[in-house]
Structures are given as C-alpha cells and as structure tokens.
C-alpha cells in the first residue's frame, strides 16, 4: 500500500522535502503514518500547528487519531491556517 505525502507551502521547509511516498504492507492508522514521517524527517507535524487533508478533504485535528487508511492514499500536510 502506497501513501503519497505532499508537504504544502511552509510544511516543505519543516520536512525539507516537497513530497514522500511511504510504503506499508497492511492498513495503518493516520497516526502511524505521521510517526513514520517524524522518524524520516526528524520533525513532528502535530496539532494545532498543522493541518491535514486526506484525498484532498480536511481531517479535523481531533479526528486524526481515529483514521485508518486501508488502501493507496494521498495525504497533504499544510499549516493550520488561522486567519489573516
């Protein structure tokens, strides 16, 4: 199972890359994906600073822990916009 990760705008400056492709051999929780990203880039994308889109749709910070990914997917990490 392949999970494509995009680091949008400033997120790429914290991960030092614009994208990743992560491979998993079984369904994983969103939190496990984020843990993998943390291990790879030595930076922890955590709420409330960061936001996340799964297949282009927003996932509220409070729902991150409960999401299970069972097939190929695309995740976008971006700053948690807060008005401007």
């Amino acid at each position: 199972m392949r999970i494509a990760v995009r680091y949008l705008g400033p997120a790429s400056s914290f991960s030092n890359t614009a994208s990743d492709v992560l491979e998993f051999d079984r369904p994983v929780s969103l939190q496990q994906v984020l843990d993998t990203i943390t291990a790879r880039h030595n930076y922890n994308f955590t709420p409330p600073a960061w936001a996340l889109l799964l297949e282009g749709r927003g996932v509220a910070n409070e729902n991150w822990a409960g999401i299970l990914i069972e097939a190929d997917a695309e995740i976008t990490i971006l700053p948690h916009l807060s008005g401007g």
Binding site: A51, L53, R57, G58, V59, A60, N63, H80, L81, S82, G83, G84
Partner: peptide, 11 residues
C-alpha cells in the same frame, strides 16, 4: 474568515 472551516475541517 471561513477558509479554515471550508478547507481543513472536512465539514
């Protein structure tokens, strides 16, 4: 400012 709700919450 609706952008956060329209883009990030999934609602």
């Amino acid at each position: 400012w609706t952008i956060r709700d329209e883009l990030l919450t999934g609602e």
